[in-house]
Amino acid sequence: METAQNLTDTARTIPAARMAQEPEAMNQKIPYPEQTIGKPLCDDPKMSMRNVNVFYGDSQAIYDVSLDIGKNQVIALIGPSGCGKSTFLRCMNRMNDTIDICKVKGSFMLEQDNIYDPKLDVVELRARVGMVFQKPNPFPKSIYENVAYGPRLHGLANKKFELDEIVENSLRKAGLWDEVKDRLDQPGTGLSGGQQQRLCIARSIAVSPEVVLMDEPCSALDPIATAKIEELIDELSSQYTIAIVTHSMQQAARVSHRTAYFHLGRLIEVNDTNTVFTAPEHALTEAYITGRFG
């Protein structure tokens, strides 16, 4: 019995261990709510998703999710691994189009435009809804070329000085300018992990998107780099609408205005970040944020 006691002790400090211990038990004990709890909708949404179902082949990854994202709002998507946060995020700029077996049902509106309208051009959509990935993925080109890629692609700058201006502004906004201004012609891949991620953020804001989607942007970074990016997100939120997926509850609490909790493809609870972390309504949410499972 001593070993069992030990295990439970460990589980208290390491939630992941607990999850391995009792994965299904949790789900069976606590039923899903009939409807998403809290306030999934808002008055003046930048993006609004309704009755979203996503399938990978025969298996369903998202079940009937409806969610609004307000203007200049930072919304954090949290939830255990495999619950469909990335899937949902990638649907918002149609990155899932590239996966053949992925089928998306429901409506996605970016202000007045239907994102999945066949007449809407994905190129335009992705200029309006940018994305930052989990792993920093700068192009194997110079720092300058990395940032200039989007503006060039969409013809945002006709003259060299205009492009220079966009590059400088984007790097400044991403808090990277002072670190790289002397070596713009060096490869972006030669930067540190945190710098690379900020470069990727600079790259995506160079085309002045309306929404920036971030999929665990700090998971590969050390605390200092993470702090820088969190600061950056805070600053960017005055101009952009941001949806961020994160595994760190502290990060969600620090940077976001609203928090959405996903569980096995269902949107359980959405509320002001404060409310979610101080007074979660649903038992699953509470279990997750108190670290009772991963």
Binding site: N93, M95, T98, V122, V123, E124, L125, R126, A127, G130, M131, F133, K135, N137, P138, F139, P140, Y149, G150, L153, H154, C200, R203, S204, V207
Partner: peptide, 27 residues
């Protein structure tokens, strides 16, 4: 060619053709 490069290009709004021409082929 790492898939992350393709994702980056597509995420920036490059078409498939542009992704191939700008990133995949050179690499």
């Amino acid at each position: 060619v790492p898939p992350s490069i393709r994702e980056a290009a597509l995420g920036m709004g490059a078409s498939r053709m542009q992704m191939v021409m700008h990133h995949v082929l050179p690499l």
